[in-house]
Simulated scan of single mutants.
Amino acid sequence: MFLIVGLGNPERKYEGTRHNVGFEAIDAISKKFGIEVSHKEHKGIVGKGVINGHKVMLVKPQTYMNLSGECVREMCDYYEVDPETELLVISDDVSLSTGNIRVRKKGSAGGHNGLKNIIAHTGSNVFPRIRVGVGECENGDMVSHVLGHYDAEDRERVDASMDKVIGALELFLEDNLDGAMNQFNVKEKVE
C-alpha cells in the first residue's frame, strides 16, 4: 500500500489558494485514475484504489496545514506504511517558479510548516515528496501569499503542472524516483 498525501487546508475559503496545491494534486490523481476521495479516516479524507497495478490510498489531511503530521503519522501507523519508501507527500513550494515541480527522496522542510509537522511526527525527514512551485512571495507577507489565489496565467501553469505531478507519481510507484527527478526537476535557483 502506498500513501499519497496532498497537503492543504480544509474549508471552502482555502480552495484554489497556493497552499492547497497538494489537495489539487490529489483531485487530479483521483480524476485521472477514478479513485473517489470521500471517506473520512484518521483525520483525513481518503480514497483507496489501484494505479498501474499498485494499491494506493489518496489522502487529504483535515488537520489544517500546520498539523498535517498528525494525519500522516496515524495513517502510516495504521496501514504499516514505511515513510521512506511507501509515502509520497505533495506540497506547495514558494521557492519554485509557478508550475514547476521538484521531486526529492528526502530533505528539510524548507520553511514549510506542513512538512515540518510531518517530520516532527514521523521522526524523520527521509520520505519522498513532490513540491509544486507556486511562485515567490513578492510583498513580504508570506501568509497572504500562500493563502492567496493565482492570477489567470499562474492558474494555467499550476493546472498544467498536474500532468507532471502524475507522471512523477507513476515513476515513484515503479520505484523509479531517480527517473522522476531526472525527468521533472527543473534546474532553477532554489534559495
Rank of each mutant, 00 (worst) to 15 (best):
L3R: 03
V5W: 05
V5Y: 03
G6K: 08
L7G: 00
R12Q: 14
R18H: 04
V21E: 02
G22Y: 06
F23T: 05
A25V: 08
I26L: 11
I26M: 11
S30K: 11
K31V: 08
I35E: 07
H39Y: 15
K40N: 15
K40R: 15
E41H: 15
K43I: 05
G47L: 05
K48T: 13
G49M: 06
I51P: 00
I51V: 12
K55S: 13
V56P: 08
M57I: 14
V59S: 13
K60W: 02
K60I: 01
Q62A: 14
M65H: 08
L67N: 15
V72E: 09
R73M: 07
D77T: 13
E80Q: 12
V81G: 07
P83V: 06
E84S: 10
E86P: 05
E86T: 02
E86Y: 02
L88C: 01
I90H: 06
D92L: 00
D93F: 04
G99I: 00
I101G: 00
R104E: 03
S108T: 13
S108V: 07
A109C: 11
A109V: 06
G110Q: 12
G110N: 11
G110V: 05
G111D: 11
N113Q: 14
G114A: 05
L115I: 14
A120R: 12
S124V: 11
S124H: 10
V126L: 10
V126W: 08
V132Y: 00
C137D: 05
M142Q: 10
S144I: 13
S144L: 14
H149Y: 10
D154F: 11
A160P: 06
L171E: 03
F172H: 05
G179R: 01
G179H: 01
M181K: 02
M181E: 08
Q183F: 02
N185C: 08
K187Y: 12
E188C: 12
K189E: 14
V190T: 13
